[in-house]
Nucleic acid binder design. Structure first.
Length: 287
DNA sequence: AGAAGGACCTGCACGC
DNA sequence: TGCGTGCAGGTCCTTC
């Protein structure tokens, strides 16, 4: 499901609703693959912690915890990756618990943060900061926050963006999906940004001109902002922290529009397989 | 280095 | 109504 705009919408929604609250208790489902850190560690770190902040890094929701004392463990963060079908919901106590609920954090005002994930591609884990190596680091009180595998698409400079794709022999679409380059872009926004930049998905990344990459960065940032503004894309089951669907799916120009006329030129939208993903583009507009 | 394919899961839409 | 097939926003692993 969720790419950058959807994860941003969920993280912001959860932040507004629960920051400053304290987690009183934690329940987890015991389905092993959901938990990248041991469930005991997750329960231990979360129980009694105050939620300082909920934010997005790449496609990951990061919950910053305040646990009072000043050892490293106080700086631990709770990471939530939604996979394809994950949902993070803030619900009143007593409302029906959905099928496929894998974690429930009960807050000090009785509300619950629930992690629900039908396909179980989502992952929950604790990010522990690495301990300071030298006394100097200690003085600076380095917080060592989770930064993710790649660069943030919304804030990367044009030159850094261009540099990412230099020497990449892979198709530009595959490079956009590579989370260790840019993180946060998935199948929808890769296709949509390439259409808006008029670039064919199969073009080799290293062979794109500076002008094309500049155009691609602008198109990507524009489409991501637009999608965030509309609460993300709800193709099948994505919802925000309140269970509300997004609206950006209505703005898709190529994604899931196979055979339908291009909104700019009328040519039927083509679908190919690339990097193991379905890839949609206009054979006339994109070169 | 990078491409392709499968694995991991459930649910839904579709054709018969 | 029910069954089989294909497909879905992500990532990780193996093989070539």
């Amino acid at each position: 499901v969720p790419e950058l705009p959807e994860v941003e919408t969920v993280a912001n929604g959860v932040h507004e609703r629960v920051h400053g609250r304290t987690i009183l208790s934690v329940w987890t489902s015991g389905k092993p693959q959901t938990f990248k850190s041991p469930e005991t560690e997750i329960a231990e770190v979360l129980t009694g912690a105050r939620i300082a902040q909920v934010r997005r890094v790449g496609k990951t929701i990061v919950m910053t915890l305040d646990r009072g004392q000043s050892n490293h463990a106080t700086q631990a963060e709770f990471l939530i990756h939604l996979g394809m079908t994950g949902r993070l919901l803030v619900s009143p106590h007593g409302t029906p618990v959905p099928l496929h609920t894998h974690a429930i954090l009960t807050l000090d005002d009785t509300r619950e943060i629930r992690f629900v994930d039908a396909r179980r591609f989502g992952r929950l884990s604790i990010h522990q900061p690495t301990p300071p190596q030298r006394a100097k680091d200690n003085e600076q009180r380095t917080t060592n926050n989770y930064t993710g595998p790649g660069r943030e698409p919304l804030t990367i400079s044009p030159n850094d963006f261009i540099a990412l794709f230099r020497n990449r022999r892979t198709p530009i679409k595959a490079a956009l999906l590579n989370q260790s380059l840019l993180h946060g872009v998935g199948n929808i926004y890769a296709d949509e940004s390439l259409f808006r930049a008029a670039i064919r998905p199969r073009r080799q990344a290293a062979r794109l001109t500076r002008a094309e990459l500049t155009r691609l960065r602008a198109a990507l940032i524009e489409v991501l902002h637009h999608a965030i503004h509309l609460g993300g894309s709800s193709v099948s089951d994505y919802v925000d922290a309140d269970g509300v669907r997004g609206f950006f799916q209505l703005q898709h120009k190529v994604y899931l529009r196979t055979g339908q006329p291009c909104l700019d030129c009328g040519t039927p939208i083509k679908k190919i397989a690339l990097a193991g993903r379905s890839t949609h583009f206009c054979p006339k507009c994109q070169r």
